[in-house]
């Protein structure tokens, strides 16, 4: 698959502080990509270099298969972490202005602003000033500003932070819809559950470097399915030590078992059924992203 974004060993220093160090990643076209990492890991610095806000000290950025050029930015929509709008400006004028900055005509920008505002149910806010809108409405306006010029690549820095649950679901749905339309989407976050739910591929960065990256399937297949969730009617049988169970944790409604590498969960299920247990829930779980991270980063940190 062609790459929409390709970073090749980009580095950025601010004075003596290293923001990004020889970072490489590739975002396949038409996919949703999650950029993860703790605060100060270099997420925002990396995104800024993809959008031409800053230039890398070394390394190369390619967008849409071509070396970085400002003219490509017309096909990129960027939502910064620190949202910004002209406070005293009428929303419609503001959207038209931002649309035209991305190469739209006045008429097109106006039509699209209305279409998006209708879709996000804020059409009646178009003729108000930003100042007069609630925070949630301002967030919607900011999404529209990012998407108005129908960018092929959408880059969002912490798009879910500060969103109320309703807007968060609206954004998830919008992003999934955009992906179905063939756009490439990149967002940074520190929320694993969102990445797990939405992303096709990820990169975890820490101290300016990629510590873990790849498609979700690759990552998960690297780690065995060794976790079992079990709920039974009545007394849960003691399983420690049999069928490769190395750990069992009793929760309120279920028991979580960890199996030794190579142990077969199907054999465990068989023996439980044969033993007469009435099983109400059985799930062989993939390792969660969070577990993978804790192992990876924890391992790195110990090394």
């Amino acid at each position: 698959m062609p790459a929409t974004v390709e970073l090749d060993r980009i580095s950025k220093h601010y004075g003596s502080k290293v923001a990004v160090e020889a970072l490489s990643l590739r975002i396949a076209s038409g996919t949703m990509f999650g950029l993860l990492g703790p605060n100060g890991a270099g997420k925002t610095s990396s995104l800024r270099m993809m959008t031409g806000i800053t230039l890398p000290d070394s390394g190369t950025v390619s967008l849409f298969g071509r070396p970085f050029a400002r003219t490509s930015l017309r096909h990129v929509g960027y939502l910064p972490e620190e949202r910004g709008l002209y406070r005293k400006m009428v929303v419609r004028d503001q959207l038209i202005f931002l649309g035209r900055m991305h190469g739209l005509s006045r008429a097109d920008a106006g039509t699209r602003a209305l279409r998006w505002a209708t879709r996000l149910q804020i059409a009646d806010s178009l003729d108000k000033k930003t100042d007069e809108l609630s925070k949630g409405m301002q967030q919607k306006i900011q999404f529209i500003a990012t998407l108005l010029h129908e960018p092929e690549l959408i880059i969002m820095d912490e798009p879910f932070s500060g969103l109320d649950p309703v807007n968060a679901i609206l954004l998830e749905d919008t992003l999934l819809q955009l992906k179905r339309e063939g756009r490439s989407i990149l967002f940074s976050t520190h929320r694993m559950d969102q990445v797990e739910k939405l992303c096709d591929a990820i990169a975890l960065i820490d101290r300016g470097r990629v510590v873990l990256g790849g498609t979700m399937r690759e990552l998960k297949s690297r780690y065995p399915r060794e976790r079992v969730l079990l709920a039974v009617d009545g007394q849960t049988p003691r399983l420690d030590g049999c069928f490769g169970v190395v750990e069992s944790r009793q929760f309120a409604g279920h028991t979580e078992l960890r199996l030794a590498p190579g142990a077969d969960p199907q054999r465990l299920l068989h023996s439980l059924v044969e033993g007469g247990a009435s099983i109400t829930h059985w799930e062989v779980r993939e390792p969660s992203l969070e577990e993978i991270f804790i192992r990876t980063v924890g391992g790195e940190a110990d090394a």
């Binding site: 959008t51 031409g52 960027y78 949202r83 910004g84 709008l85 900055m101 500003a145």
Partner: peptide, 10 residues
């Protein structure tokens, strides 16, 4: 108001 972040991306 951080509007520059939006503008500088284009």
């Amino acid at each position: 108001s951080r509007i520059y972040e939006v503008l500088l991306a284009t």
